[in-house]
């Protein structure tokens, strides 16, 4: 009789579910909005021409769908694989499993967003690549006025 395989999910990992991270600051700037829009192939001038965007009622160039600013890069800080999931796992590889972003208000260049994130779900499954750990993290973004602007859920697959 084969023994059931031991779970890769430890009590330490489970204890992280629901624990809010320290806030992380994301700056949304004009060049970054344009670069993101260019990468996605947008041609709508609202993403490139600030005067045009203002004529359409935006405060500045809006952030395209999927762009919530960049965190400040710190070469002396920890370099992590896989975003916000902090507990050490036995896996070396990670795949992006999915993205779900819900917007509550417009994000524009000049905004400074503050996000906190938490692990909301942990599961595991066997695949042809071996055991996989599936994590779902939820990040809540507020702007400089404290207004909730977006909620993002990301699925990570570690194997």
């Amino acid at each position: 009789m084969a023994q059931p395989k031991a779970s890769v999910i430890t009590d330490k990992m489970r204890a992280e579910i629901g624990v809010e991270s320290e806030p992380i600051t994301f700056e949304v700037d004009k060049t970054a909005c344009r670069m993101f829009a260019r990468a996605v192939g947008y041609t709508d001038p609202i993403y490139f021409d600030e005067q045009y965007a203002k004529s359409k009622g935006y405060r500045s160039i809006p952030a395209p769908v999927g762009f919530l600013g960049h965190p400040t890069y710190d070469p002396n800080g920890p370099q992590r694989l896989g975003g916000y999931f902090r507990t050490d796992t036995p896996f070396k590889r990670i795949l992006n499993g999915g993205t779900d972003i819900e917007y509550f208000d417009t994000v524009c260049a000049g905004d400074v967003l503050t996000a906190t994130s938490k692990l909301v779900d942990l599961s595991e499954r066997e695949s042809r690549l071996g055991p996989m750990l599936i994590t779902v993290t939820e990040s809540t973004y507020r702007n400089q006025d404290g207004k909730l602007v977006a909620r993002a859920r990301g699925t990570g697959i570690q194997y």
Binding site: F36, G41, P64, V65, G66, N96, G97, T99, I101, Y103
Partner: peptide, 30 residues
């Protein structure tokens, strides 16, 4: 990149809803 596909789905919707429409939520699995 998975997230590029998410962003492309967002662009598809942005272009479809026109200047007076807006995209409220985009969710996808890779």
């Amino acid at each position: 990149h998975g997230a590029l596909k998410h962003a492309l789905l967002g662009r598809m919707l942005h272009e479809w809803v026109g200047a007076e429409g807006s995209v409220k939520r985009v969710a996808c699995q890779y």
